[in-house]
Design a protein around this nucleic acid. Structure first.
Lengths: 138, 138
DNA sequence: TTATTAGTTTATAATCAGTCTAAAGTAGAA
DNA sequence: TTCTACTTTAGACTGATTATAAACTAATAA
C-alpha cells in the first residue's frame, strides 16, 4: 500500500489524513503479517523505525479511532495493559499467562456448538475464545 | 457455613484465620448464589454490610491469596479493572460491553470442538469463552 | 490564494487501579 | 506469657490511561 491509499482509506471513513495517522497506518498495515502490540510498543516503534515522535495521547486517540473504524481490534485479556491486533478477522488466541505471549488461532479452527441464547434484549456481538497456556514444567 | 467452618477452611489451606479473612469469607461464601465483583465492590461491601473497614491492600492480598487457593476465580476481560467470581466451577460468560454486566454460562452448555494443539512446549491450563453482547438498539 | 473553522496534536496534569513499604498488630507454638 | 513469623495498615508509589487547554493544520469557502 502506498501513502495515497492510506489517505483515501482515512478520508473515506471520515478521519482526516494527518501526518501522524498516515505514519501509524504505514507502521500497522504495511506489513506482511498481522501482529499484536501495546500502545507503548507502537509509540516506541514510531520513534525508532519511523523517526516520528508521536505524543502518547495521539497514539491513544488514533488507536481508539482506528478501533472504532474497525482497522484494528482490541484484545480482551485479564492482565495489565491492553493489546491491539492488526488481524481484524474473527479469530481466537492462545495466551501465555506467564510470558504474556499471544498467538492467533484462525476462527475456523475451533468449532463452537450450542451457543446459548443471549439474555433477553441483548444480542451477540462477538465471541472471544482465549486458550490460556503455560510452559511445561521441566 | 458457620465461622468455625471458615476458620477450618482457611487453616487447612495454610492461611491464618484472621478477623479480616473470616469476614471476607462470610461476605463471599455465605450467599445463596455465586456472584461477580471488583476489589472496590468488595471493600465497600465489607464496610457497608459488614461494618468492617478493611484496608484496600488487605482486600487485594486476601483476594490474591484466595485465588491462589482456588476459592475465587479472576475473570479475564479487556476493559478497565478486573473482576473476581465466587463461582469456581469451570464456566464461561456473557459480557455486556456497554454496561459491564457479567452473566455466567455453565461450561457444559457450550461445546468446543477441534481445539488446536498448543504451541510446542506449552500446555493448556484453561479455556475462557467470552460472549460479548449488547442491548438491542430500539 | 487567503481566511475561517472545525478537527487534531501536544505536553502536561490528573486520575485510577494496583503494588510496595515499613511500622504496628496478632495468631500460633513453645 | 513470650517469642516469632505472618498480617494488616496507611500512605507513598507506579504505570496505564484520560482530561485539558493551547498551538497547529486540513478542509472549505471566499
Amino acid at each position: 500500500m502506498k501513502n495515497q491509499d492510506f489517505i483515501n482509506k482515512l478520508r473515506n471513513s471520515g478521519l482526516r489524513p494527518t501526518k501522524q495517522r498516515i505514519k501509524i497506518c504505514e507502521a500497522l498495515f504495511n506489513t506482511e503479517k498481522t501482529f499484536h502490540f501495546t500502545v507503548n510498543d507502537l509509540a516506541k516503534m514510531m520513534q525508532k523505525n519511523f523517526n516520528e515522535k508521536i505524543s502518547l495521547a495521539t497514539v491513544y486517540n488514533t488507536l481508539h479511532a482506528f478501533k472504532k473504524k474497525g482497522y484494528v481490534k482490541e484484545i480482551s485479556l485479564g492482565n495489565d495493559n491492553s493489546y491491539f491486533d492488526t488481524n481484524i478477522s474473527s479469530h481466537h488466541h492462545f495466551y501465555d499467562t506467564k510470558t504474556n505471549e499471544l498467538i492467533d488461532i484462525d476462527s475456523s479452527k475451533i468449532e463452537l456448538k450450542n451457543i446459548p441464547n443471549p439474555p433477553k434484549g441483548k444480542s451477540i456481538k462477538e465471541i472471544d475464545v482465549v486458550i490460556n497456556v503455560e510452559n511445561d514444567s521441566q
